[in-house]
């Protein structure tokens, strides 16, 4: 039910998440000179896609400013951004960037990130095989009576935890894909949605290999 709601809510021009199967069809395989080279047909595709790019950087002064300054300065899009230190010993932080653009733009974003000096690795989690992506949202819903009961019931369906409660409100903690969180928020709107705080996407590739080894 939740999924249906999400689909309905999404505008028709919603950006696509590029699925490997669909891509393979459009690509001119013969033009692949080496691993990682992007085929011309794909670069000429004018459709917009949503990509999640993970960046491993040195945790040093101004590194975040460097990354987002480059992206803003070149007019690329930032849908969501998460940053946190992930390896204290080596002083590494991981930035997860959800961005929108044509394949050509996404390739540019990656190449521009790749040449920043404190950047260790840039990985396109949307293109480089399967990955999981989650975000967490705190959703405050106010109301009494039936609406309050309904909010709690839907929260249950979404496996959302209630982390704060008053007689007139709940704060739900909901974890999931961006689509799931969107859907939950959409459903809460008629039930007295007060405000939302979201973390943005944290993502990681499936399988045994880490980001530094493909």
């Amino acid at each position: 039910m939740a999924k249906k709601a999400a689909k309905k809510a999404a505008p028709k021009t919603a950006p696509k998440t590029s699925a490997p199967a669909k891509r393979a069809k459009a690509e001119d395989q013969s033009s692949n000179l080496y691993e990682g080279m992007v085929p011309v047909a794909r670069l000429k595709d004018k459709d917009t896609y949503r990509h999640i790019v993970s960046i491993l950087v040195d945790n040093e002064a101004g590194v975040l400013a460097r990354v987002i300054g480059m992206i803003a300065g070149r007019g690329y899009n930032i849908e969501s951004l998460t940053v946190c230190e992930v390896d204290r010993e080596r002083g590494l932080s991981r930035i997860n960037l959800a961005t929108l653009g044509t394949h050509q733009i996404i390739e540019q974003v990656k190449a521009q990130l790749g040449r920043l000096v404190p950047v260790h690795v840039v990985r396109d989690l949307t293109d480089d095989g399967p990955s999981v992506a989650r975000e967490l949202a705190l959703v405050k819903v106010g109301g009494v009576g039936d609406k309050r009961v309904e909010a709690l019931r839907i929260g249950d369906i979404f496996r959302a935890n209630v982390v704060d409660s008053s007689t007139q409100s709940f704060v739900f903690e909901v974890v999931g894909t961006t689509e799931k969180v969107d859907a939950f928020i959409e459903l809460m709107k008629p039930l007295g949605l007060v405000e939302v705080s979201r973390t943005g996407v944290a993502a990681i590739a499936r399988g045994a290999a880490g980001i530094e080894k493909k």
Partner: peptide, 11 residues
Amino acid sequence: MAAQAASKAPR
């Protein structure tokens, strides 16, 4: 995340 920058060794 920028706090401890000064003490970081160059690369």
